[in-house]
Structures are given as C-alpha cells and as structure tokens.
Amino acid sequence: MKPVFTYTKGMLPVSTSYCPGCTHGIAHRLIMEVLEENGKLGDTVGVAPIGCSVLAHQFMNVDMCEAAHGRAPAVATGIRRAQPHKVVFTYQGDGDLASIGMSEIIAAAARGERFSTFFINNGIYGMTGGQIAPTTLIGQRGTTAVEGRTKAQFGMPIKMCELIAQLECAVYVERVALNTPANVRKAKKAVQKAFEVQEKGLGFSFVEFLSTCPTNWGLTPSDALQWVSDKMIPYYPLGVYRAPQPEGGQA
C-alpha cells in the first residue's frame, strides 16, 4: 500500500496547544512542508511571536526563538545579518503584527529585509481572550466591544497586504485563506513563492493567511470556515498584491 498522506518531518511529533478548528495547525504544516520539500529544515531559523503561536517552537522542527510582542521583524533582521545564508521567517498574528508591531513590520518591509513573514489574520486577539484587533471586522464582536466593532470607536480594519504592497522593497505580497481545500493548496503555493523570493535574495516577502478563531468568535469549527468565506474574504480580497517582474520582463 502506498501512503497518500503522511506526517511532515517539519512538524515535531507532539500535540499542539491549539483549539479545535483553529487554522494555526494548517499554516504551521504548510510552512514546514515546503521547508521539508526544499530540504531546508536544518538550514532555517524561525521567529515565534507573542500570542497563541508563541509555542510554535515546540511544534516546528527548525531552530527558533521567541520575540517580544510585535518585535519579530526586528529580531529576524538581526538573525538575517548574523546568518546571511539561512532561510529566515517570522510567524505573527494580527495583534502582534498589525497593532503593537506595526513599526517593526513596516520598517523591515521598507528595508527589503531578505526574510519571509507569515501573517495569521483571524481578526481577534486569541490568547488574551478575544479582544478587538486592528483587523477585526466592523460589527464583529470582541470582549472590548461586546456590541461589535464600530467605525466611530475603532476606525476601519487595517488591510496589511495593501499597506505592505506600497513598499517597493516588499517584493512578494499575497493574501490567501485557509477555509477550503482549494484555498489551502493556493496557500501552499504562496509559501513556496515567498521562500523562493527569499532564496533569490530579491527582498521582503509577506503572506497573509485569513484564519479562524472558533473559540473567540463563538462559532463551531465549520461555521468559522464559512465565516471566513462570507465575511472576511469580501473585506480582505485574496490574491497577489505584489510580485517580482518575470525574468527578462520590463520593470
């Protein structure tokens, strides 16, 4: 019998700390699968954020460090300088990246740092218990806005891909979703592309994953996936926001 689906060596054989229906596990696996396929697990350094995925280093089978809340892109900048030939990535949630870490992510993207950032956007603070995030949708409820987010109080949700794509040295920027098998396959291609751009030394690469948080959204895992389709994707359109020009093409 030929196995059609197996564990990836990129994930350590342990149970994760994630809630049922959370898509962190899918995102972890996609990144690690690509690194395994590229033969890079032993030549990669990852940075875990603050948030539910602070423990990513217990699950991902690569050298890793923790970063203070929002600081992962600065930490990765330092790692990149000390280890210029390794694959370097940050893995960050929306509170981490789009709120407290806005300065670090924009500065790293503007400098065109040669690492990849994987951005988990589930529109809420997960680990601290469901507070409004910079990416929470209008009308979406959180423990700091029990009646739902309003524009008057919080302004509008931040679209990170659109923001990052303004920066010329951010050479690959794509938004994907983890809500359907077809989208998961597209997400893997985006991860492959991000690492490819990094290995070619072209600049900064950024992949945003629209993700779920059934626990803090108060939805079942399957309803949460549907919610990504119905609510998140219309506000956060999927697609490539910036990509390198094809070789030989006009700039």
Binding site: G78, R81, A82
Partner: peptide, 9 residues
C-alpha cells in the same frame, strides 16, 4: 530586538 536576533543567531 535586532541585537537579540543577531545575538541569538
């Protein structure tokens, strides 16, 4: 934090 990253590496 760059220091932390470079030092950790």
């Amino acid at each position: 934090n760059m220091t932390y990253g470079a030092g950790a590496a």
